[in-house]
């Protein structure tokens, strides 16, 4: 990857973060931490990896995205707006009456391939989508994003066992290992030991990459296997990109004053400006 290409991805990730915060700011509260931690992944996926057409979001041969940690909706919505699936202004309808942008992703919105929100359930659906694409002879991939707390759900591991057992090499499982869930750290709530080893043991071709390393992400997400699903463990930080959010203990769902959102936005916009 050239320096220019890398910079372009980093800038796009910043734009996603800005769109995410603007989206949440419009309602005044929302899931900030878990949205920010996947911004770089979404940037790489939508800019360099995934095959899609915003004008034809239902195209059968498109690559699919299942954000099983549905509460990261604002980050996905922000990405979809920047990629032309939805008008940017629609971001400001988050959680408003009759909106298509609820806290958790809903497939009535163009570009959302799976309705999520009940943690764990996106995993089996993503596996079903990947299997369905294979059975129908489509050459496309499904990218599944789960939280790490979400992996507490047994359903995730049933889905993992199936995906590997049925050799679904068109599935890429991105586990956002930001080390935190809702009530606190994984260590405090339910330690997970070695996540990458778990995926390996389940039969995945597994890599670990820093959550904000766009170059590493590009390599990991480009990976192909003959007969295994891919697992990408994101060594990430909850709230990545906004210092105050990263440092806040309670950054899962945040309810702050408009001025505070503005400070966060300034920090992100300054970084973007610095990049030229």
């Amino acid at each position: 990857m050239t320096l220019e290409e890398k910079k372009e991805l980093q800038k796009f990730a910043l734009q996603i973060r800005i769109a995410t915060i603007e989206c949440i700011k419009s309602r005044g509260f929302g899931h900030v931490g878990g949205s920010l931690s996947i911004a770089d992944t979404l940037a790489v996926l939508y800019k360099r990896i995934m095959n899609y057409d915003p004008k034809d979001p239902g195209l059968e041969t498109r690559d699919k995205l299942v954000c099983s940690k549905g509460h990261a909706g604002p980050a996905v919505y922000g990405t979809l707006a920047l990629c032309g699936f939805i008008p940017y202004e629609q971001l400001y309808t988050l959680n408003q009456p009759a909106t298509k942008l609820p806290s958790h992703c809903d497939r009535t919105l163009p570009g959302i391939d799976c309705t999520t929100g009940s943690l764990g359930q996106g995993t089996s659906q993503a596996v079903g989508i990947a299997l369905g694409d294979k059975l129908q002879g489509r050459d496309c991939r499904t990218f599944l994003i789960t939280g790490d707390g979400e992996l507490n759900e047994g359903q995730c591991w049933e889905a993992a066992m199936f995906a590997a057992g049925k050799k679904l090499n068109n599935l890429v499982w991105i586990a956002d290992w930001n080390k935190r869930q809702l009530d606190g750290s994984l260590e405090e709530i339910l330690p997970q030991f070695d996540l990458a080893e778990k995926f390996k043991a389940f039969g995945f071709d597994t890599v670990t990459v820093a959550g904000d390393d766009v170059e590493g992400l590009y390599e990991a997400l480009s990976r192909r296997s003959e007969d295994k699903p891919i697992a990408v463990v994101l060594d990430s930080v909850k709230g990545r990109g906004v210092k105050a959010v990263e440092e806040s203990a309670g950054n899962h769902s945040m309810n702050v004053a408009p001025e505070v959102f503005d400070e966060w936005l300034k920090e992100l916009r300054d970084k973007l400006a610095e990049m030229g």
Binding site: R27, F29, G70, N95, P102, S103, H104, D106, T115, T116, G117, S118
Partner: peptide
């Protein structure tokens, strides 16, 4: 959060 008291968590909740 029974019924409509789930409010901003939406339909899934």
């Amino acid at each position: 959060d029974p019924g409509i008291t789930a409010a901003f968590n939406g339909g899934t909740h």
